[in-house]
């Protein structure tokens, strides 16, 4: 029992459950999941579906933060990827062709990869501070997306493209399946090999890891490329969901939500230790928070305040010092065993 309570994801999980349960008082059918036209339908499905772009971005952000960096450009990469895919599909003679859509998806992901390379080279080869290096693409990338689309919202009517963000396979949303596959692949690749340890070493101390013979430069570039490709997939899901590319709105400020998700998940912003499961949980929590504000009818003007309060409660609950202070006041002192040093 204490092992569960001590787990670093215990408190975020508690807040997530509390959030979800609080909805039932306002929408009694909140936990009901039904089959609608052959696919799962319900609020919990909405929470998962709307968490997908953020979960992917947070996954990529986790790896970048683990190397001691940060990537502000993920939102702009999302915008570029969506814009390129929709423009390409819009020019197809037959928008319904699966081959054409796959080509568009491939093109968008290759561009995302190039964006990641750019970030990685700026940070690890040229040596610019990550926050500044990725700020360049954050600003320029959205400009590029707007240039590509001429500032317009690009609409497509392509059934195969719609599948990515709004389709269902075996009654499950395809976007959720995509995220599950990417996360599983990342966990296998990073946690079942030495890669994760190497990344943590680079994040903890680039100099020491280099002296130990780790190719810090390559790993750092790899992390930025991974983050950008994740953002690229997120951009495809985002634009496919509404069958259009809106280069102003796509991924706007998502970098901050992603950083929040990563921090909720217990990854230190200073680099080193990271938790993929934690970041995904953080993304689901943020999405649940959004859906909750809509369901319980928080007035539009106070939505941000409501979110801020929940985040503050969450951060306080995660702080061992805060919990200790609260518990000490409630119980008589000296009964609690000496606090273990958090690993």
């Amino acid at each position: 029992m204490t092992a569960i309570v001590k787990h670093r994801l215990f408190w975020p999980a508690v807040v997530l459950v509390l959030l979800l349960v609080s909805n039932v008082f306002f929408a009694p059918r909140f936990f009901t999941i039904t089959l609608q036209d052959g696919h799962l339908y319900g609020s919990l499905i909405d929470v998962l579906r709307s968490a997908t772009p953020l979960a992917l971005v947070a996954l990529g952000m986790t790896m970048v933060i683990a190397t001691g960096g940060i990537d502000l450009s993920v939102g702009s990469v999302m915008a570029i990827s969506g814009a390129v895919a929709c423009l390409f599909i819009g020019d197809l003679s037959n928008q319904g062709s699966v081959g054409g859509v796959l080509l568009a998806v491939g093109l968008a992901l290759v561009l995302a990869l190039v964006a990641g390379l750019w970030n990685g080279v700026l940070v690890s080869v040229i040596g610019i501070q990550p926050i500044i290096a990725t700020l360049i693409l954050m600003v320029a990338g959205r400009g590029i997306a707007q240039l590509l689309t001429g500032g317009q919202i690009i609409n497509v009517s392509s059934p195969p493209f719609r599948v990515i963000g709004a389709g269902y396979a075996l009654a499950i949303p395809v976007s959720v399946i995509i995220v599950a596959v990417v996360v599983a692949a990342a966990v296998l690749l990073i946690r079942r090999s030495a890669l994760g340890v190497l990344v943590e070493a680079v994040g903890a101390s680039p100099t020491a890891s280099r002296l130990a013979g780790i190719r810090a430069r390559g790993l750092t570039i790899g992390a930025y490329v991974f983050a950008a490709v994740c953002a690229g997939i997120a951009g495809l899901i985002f634009s496919s969901n509404v069958a259009s590319a809106d280069s102003n709105a796509a991924g706007n400020l998502i970098e901050l939500d992603a950083i929040l998700a990563v921090v909720i998940g217990g990854t230190a912003l200073t680099g080193g230790r990271f938790s993929i499961a934690g970041s995904v949980l953080g993304a689901v929590l943020i999405s649940a928070l959004d859906i909750t504000t809509y369901t319980i009818g928080v007035p539009a003007e106070t939505t941000l305040l409501f979110k801020a309060v929940v985040v503050v409660i969450l951060c306080l609950s995660q702080s061992a010092a805060f919990r200790a202070a609260v518990f000490r006041r409630r119980r008589t002192p000296a009964v609690t065993p000496a606090a273990e040093v958090p690993a």
Binding site: F26, A27, R29, F30, G42, S43, D46, S50, I153, F238, N241, V242, S244, D246, A249, A250, D290, I291, Y294, T295, G297
Partner: peptide, 18 residues
């Protein structure tokens, strides 16, 4: 937020709550 994505997301929640 004047955008399609948010319009869709909020309407999804409305449809379940009401």
């Amino acid at each position: 937020q004047f955008t399609r994505t948010d319009g869709k997301e909020v309407m999804e929640a409305f449809l379940k709550a009401h």
